[in-house]
Amino acid sequence: MKTKIKSLLIFALIIFSVSLTKQLSAQQNQISFQVFYDQLSPYGQWVDYPEYGFVWIPDGGSDFIPYSTAGHWVLTDYGWTWVSDYDWGWAPFHYGRWDYDSFYGWFWVPDNEWGPAWVNWRQADGYYGWAPMHPGVSITITFHREYNERNDHWIFVRNRDLDRPHINLYFVNRSDHDRIIRNSKVIKNTYQDRNRNTTYVSGPDREDVRKATGRKVRPVAVKENSNPGQHLKNGRLQIYRPQVNNRNDNEQRITPSRVTNLKDLKESSERRNTNQPKNVNPSNTRKERKSNAVNPPRNSTKEQTRKNRTEKDKKRSE
């Protein structure tokens, strides 16, 4: 009897130790927004944007478009996953959301949920398309008919070209977007990540892509990277994707070490592109990227807001 009780106690102790180890490991793998602030600072500007707080504007030049410039799609267990050629791509394409300002260009709003790519997907006869998901919008809302991204925020390719490594060379001319969108429907495929208690939009169905491309679509294995960065090699995507704690337990506001004043930031067309991808495709020259990327037109409402803000600043200084 004593031996049996002793065995049960040992077994319970082992279970407790394993559980405690997992909890400690999870805590150690957690980061705060400070990691985003520190890791992205060399590649762009942190600004205090009125609507969102601290946002990041990459030094990618006026032709930069998220989920379009310098990267491509691969299929993983989580769905279609964006693999960026930028050193910093592990963060802004897998956490948070992107928004567009007519003066400053594209900017990134941090968030704590990891995903294969925070985009909406559409399909039409012979086409697939995607667009950055708006900040603060859940994926269930994006499935509703009332939710619409601007037509000029979408990227479309022929469905046979979705898995191309040099996908930027296959973008459909933007003049065809209105026609394609009118005849398209939302792709509502999702993947539920039980480990992170998060649901992702997984994009086009694997079998549909296989039929369209005529090629086998082999999923890429996602492996944890211990340091910031990502690397795709031999059918494995090693990527840094820690749990992010969006609460500050120290009661001290976490901020970027260097914040640029919005008034001092130049218009996107005037800012230099000092942020080159680490793995530039041989055929993906600057000239070709520029010819394939299409900048959204100015948004008169946001432009007027910027002018009003500038006028208020002038009056305040007087």
Rank of each mutant, 00 (worst) to 15 (best):
M1Q: 10
I5R: 15
L9F: 09
L13V: 13
I14S: 08
F16V: 13
S17H: 07
V18R: 06
L20N: 11
K22E: 15
L24S: 13
S25L: 07
N29V: 05
Q30G: 14
Q30V: 10
I31D: 10
I31H: 11
Q34T: 07
F36G: 06
D38F: 03
G44T: 06
Q45W: 02
P50K: 08
V55W: 00
I57A: 04
I57C: 04
D59E: 14
G60P: 03
S62K: 12
A70Q: 02
V74H: 00
D77H: 05
Y78H: 09
G79T: 04
F93Y: 10
G96M: 07
D99A: 13
Y100H: 09
Y100L: 07
S102K: 07
Y104V: 02
V109P: 03
W114V: 10
P116N: 09
N120C: 10
Q123D: 15
D125Y: 06
G126Q: 01
Y127H: 06
Y128T: 10
W130V: 01
P132T: 02
P132K: 01
P135K: 03
P135E: 01
S138F: 04
S138Q: 10
S138N: 11
S138M: 08
T142E: 00
N148C: 14
R150M: 11
V157W: 00
P165C: 02
L169G: 08
L169R: 06
N173I: 05
R174S: 14
S175R: 13
H177C: 11
D178F: 12
I187K: 03
I187S: 07
N189W: 00
T190Q: 06
T190C: 08
Y191P: 12
Y200F: 12
V201H: 04
P204F: 01
D205P: 07
E207G: 09
D208R: 11
T213C: 08
R215W: 03
K216N: 14
V217T: 06
R218H: 11
V220Q: 00
V220C: 00
A221D: 13
K223H: 11
E224I: 05
N225K: 12
N234V: 09
G235M: 01
L237M: 06
Q238L: 12
Y240V: 06
P242V: 02
Q243E: 15
E251N: 15
R253P: 09
R253F: 11
S257I: 04
L262T: 03
K263Y: 08
D264N: 13
E267S: 12
S268Y: 03
R271D: 07
N273K: 13
Q276M: 14
P277Y: 00
K278R: 14
N279I: 05
N281P: 08
R286E: 10
R286P: 05
K287S: 13
R289A: 03
S291Q: 09
S291D: 12
N292Q: 12
P297V: 03
N299T: 15
K302L: 13
K302M: 14
E303I: 09
Q304E: 14
R306L: 06
R306W: 04
